[in-house]
Computed example of a mutant assay.
Amino acid sequence: MNGRSSMGWCFGRAGAWLVLLFLVLPALIALPVSLTPERYLSVPKDSMSLRHYANLFSSDEWISSIFQSLVIACGAAILATVLGTLCAIGLWRISTRFSEAIRALLLLPLIIPPIISAMAFYRVWVKLGLLDSYLGMIIAHAILAAPMVLITVSAALANFDPKLEQASRNLGAALPTTLRRVIFPSIRPGILAGAVFAFILSWDEIVVTLFIAKFRVFTLPRRMWDGIRENTDPTVAAAAVVLIVVTLTALLLSVLLSRGRAPAAETKET
C-alpha cells in the first residue's frame, strides 16, 4: 500500500512538472528570438546579437513604457494590498454566512472574463473622467488584484491563533494597536505574497489597459501589443524577456521573504 502511494505521488509530481513545462516553455521562445541579429522575428542560426536589448533600453518610447508599467504596478500593488488585507481581516472577524457571501462577491474579478471587466471599466471610467489616466489605471488594476491579496491574507489568517488577539485586548490594547503589534506581524507573509501577486498581475495586464488607456498611458504590455500589430520588430521579444525576468524575480523575492519569516516565527515560538 505504501509502495502504491509513493508511486502515485511520483506520477503526480511528474504530471505536475509536465503541465508546468507545457505552460512555461512556449513563453521561453522569446529568449532566442530576442537574440536574433535580424530586423524581423526569427530564431538566430549562425550568430546572436544584443542589438534589440540595446534598442529597448535606449529608446525613449520603450523606457517610458517600462517606467509607466513600474509606476502603475507599484501603485496598484500598494492599493490592492491595503484593500485586500483590510477586507480579509474584516471578514475574518465577522465570520458569518453573510461574510462568506461578501467574500464570494469580492472574488468575482477573478471569475469574470477580462474582456467583460474591461468593458465595464470603460463605461464607468468615461463617466468619472478617469479614462487614459494613471489614477484610472492604478484603481482598475488594484480592483483586479485585490482578490489575490484577499486569498493570500485569508490563508494566513486561517493559521492565526485568535487567542493572541484576545490576550492583547485583555491587556488593554486598542484595536489599532492590536492590528499593528499582533495581527499584522503574524500574517505578514500572506500580505507580502499578496502584494507580489498584485504587482505581477498589474505588470502583465493588457486587456483592461487596451480599453482604458488611449494616448497618454502606454504600459510595456501595450507597447508590445502595438509592436506586434504594426510591425515585427524583435525588440518586442526583448521586452517580453524583461517582463518574464521581472515576474520571476518578484516570485523569487516572495519565496525568499516567506522562508525568511518562517524561521523567525519558529524562533519566537521556541
Rank of each mutant, 00 (worst) to 15 (best):
W17H: 11
F197A: 10
R97A: 08
Y134A: 12
S154A: 01
L20Q: 08
T178F: 01
I191A: 15
S69Y: 07
S69L: 12
A240W: 01
R261W: 13
L171Q: 01
L21Q: 10
R229H: 03
P32S: 06
W225I: 08
L56W: 00
I29P: 06
I111Y: 03
L251Q: 13
L128N: 05
H52C: 02
P221I: 09
L201I: 15
R169C: 10
G75N: 05
P162V: 00
L130F: 10
S258Y: 09
V255F: 12
V19I: 15
I63N: 12
T178S: 01
L35P: 07
I72F: 04
I138L: 07
L50K: 06
V246K: 05
P189C: 09
V126M: 13
A173E: 08
E38T: 11
G90E: 02
L20G: 07
T209L: 07
L107D: 01
D60P: 03
L105P: 01
R222K: 15
A262D: 12
E230R: 10
M148Y: 15
S47G: 09
C10I: 15
L243I: 08
P221A: 05
Y53C: 02
R103P: 07
A238W: 04
I187W: 03
A237K: 04
F211K: 07
L201W: 13
F199H: 05
L256R: 10
L86C: 09
T267L: 13
P26Y: 00
S47V: 09
F67D: 14
E269S: 13
I183V: 14
S133C: 07
A158R: 09
A239T: 00
E205L: 02
A173Y: 02
S95E: 14
I102R: 02
L144A: 12
R93P: 00
